[in-house]
């Protein structure tokens, strides 16, 4: 199968199919964005674009060039013509490249799904005219691609992801802090098995600052329902953690992991993050992208 092939050149074909599938998807901002470079998202700045909104009486200090002279001629009153401004939303995709993402070992399912989501979301954002960047964090070799609007940025992102093998156990939060300095939308694609508390703390600060933060929780089906065969399981990020996954401990594990995921979802949602679970093999990447990029109301309905 082509997906199982590890050759980086071949991965373009995989991503090409996905990019083609998400070509028509739009990713509107969840709220009014700050003003700035004109773009596709509604800005909170009243500008002078062609999209009329309302008139306001002229006040001293207003620019005389913004007075609607035709209305002044008809009503002998000076009004300022107001219109909604539209702005871009710089987007940063942070993909977790720690060792825990290389699971299951036979398929690398979590990492492949995270990579597909990262590329596809970047492409959707780029198609909407937003600058998009990528941060590969948590691994042994962090990589950062600053948000760009140019078309080649998607290829850069694909190249960076394809050249990365998940390994190591570095914390994610510091990289997020650095990568999301001047972006309006932050997407964290991770299994959150490392420093989830610190990530939540950092992300909460961004939310409070009026930015949009998405948390995509990647989970393997084998993690939710591990094989029933008795085994000694080892945490790849903490080799000292060796536990016996047998009969009664398996039941305890399933319950504990489910409780942890529920708690994480609640904490992230309460903090204002857009939390989404992405279970490997449960949905197609295209469907996941549509769910992640849907407007707030539509996502709730979905």
């Amino acid at each position: 199968m082509r997906e199982a092939d590890a050759n980086p050149d071949d991965t373009y074909y995989d991503f090409a199919a996905l990019l083609d599938a998400v070509r028509g998807i739009r990713w509107p901002a969840r709220s009014i964005v700050r003003g700035g470079i004109p773009g596709g998202h509604t800005s909170r700045v009243w500008g002078s674009s062609a999209e009329f909104s309302e008139y306001r009486p002229y006040r001293q200090g207003d620019d005389l060039r913004r007075i609607d002279w035709k209305l002044f001629a008809r009503s002998d009153r000076a009004y300022i013509r107001l219109s909604n401004d539209r702005s871009i939303l710089p987007t940063m995709i942070v993909v977790d490249a720690s060792a825990s993402m290389a699971f299951p070992i036979s398929t690398n399912g979590k990492w492949r799904l995270a990579a597909q989501l990262g590329v596809a979301l970047a492409a959707v954002a780029r198609n909407g005219g937003d600058p998009v960047g990528l941060a590969l964090a948590g691994g042994r070799k962090p990589e950062l691609i600053a948000p760009r609007t140019r078309r080649s940025v998607i290829q850069e992102i694909i190249r960076a992801i394809s050249a990365t093998q998940p390994a190591g156990s570095a914390p994610l939060a510091p990289s997020i802090s650095i990568a999301a300095q001047s972006v309006g939308r932050l997407v964290i694609v991770s299994d959150f098995l490392g420093d989830a508390t610190e990530i939540l703390s950092v992300a909460s600060r961004f939310v409070v600052a009026g930015r949009e933060v998405h948390a995509v929780h990647v989970v393997a089906a084998e993690e939710i329902d591990p094989p029933r065969e008795a085994s000694m399981v080892t945490d790849p990020e903490a080799p000292g953690t060796r536990r016996a996954l047998i009969g009664e401990t398996r039941d305890g594990y399933v319950a504990a992991f489910a409780a942890w995921r529920d708690g994480l979802a609640h904490e992230f949602s309460d903090a204002g993050l857009a939390y989404s679970a992405a279970i490997v093999g449960d949905e197609t990447p295209e469907h996941l992208i549509r769910r992640l990029t849907a407007p707030r109301g539509a996502a709730a309905i979905a």
Binding site: L193, E223, S231, V233, T234, D235, A238, A244, Y253
Partner: peptide, 12 residues
């Protein structure tokens, strides 16, 4: 038992 990798081993 045989050894295997499980990133969520901490929950066992």
């Amino acid at each position: 038992p045989r050894s295997s990798i499980l990133p969520t081993a901490r929950f066992v």
